[in-house]
Amino acid sequence: MSLSLVLAISAGLFALGTMMFVVKKNLIAILMGVELLMNAAALNFMGFSYYSPAKGHPLDGQVFALFVILIAAAEAVVALGIAIAVYKEFGHVSADKLSQLEG
């Protein structure tokens, strides 16, 4: 295990998440992609915190990983609320059919 390996895993997660975010049709699947992106970011923070800690502050990266996790939780809650409101309004959550702004 090395820093490059951690970063490579994180880059893999990031690429998968980005592609899900771009190409998926279902809103919930897009949300899953965003969760993968957030995980990649937090994993990067953890990797740098372990392999290259700041002098005297070895845990700063872990604090930021915590913040990333909490922000991802808030984002998931709000986005899921939006998805359920969209489902109640239109009867589907297909991203390519949602073209009305004020339904």
């Binding site: 951690v6 279902n26 809103l27 919930i28 949300l31 899953m32 969760e35 995980n39 937090a42 953890m46 990797g47 915190s49 372990y50 872990q62 990983a65 915590l66 996790i69 909490l70 991802a72 939780a73 998931a76 809650v77 899921l80 998805a83 359920i84 489902y87 589907h92 959550v93």
Partner: peptide, 29 residues
């Protein structure tokens, strides 16, 4: 990677919360 507390937060918030939430979202919509 030496982050025991962050791993526990990840388990509780992500695996226990967000993943269940997304599963519910998938089943509801």
């Amino acid at each position: 990677l030496g982050g025991d507390f962050v791993a526990m937060v990840q388990l509780m918030v992500y695996a226990g919360g967000v993943a269940i939430l997304l599963t519910f979202g998938a089943m509801l919509t």
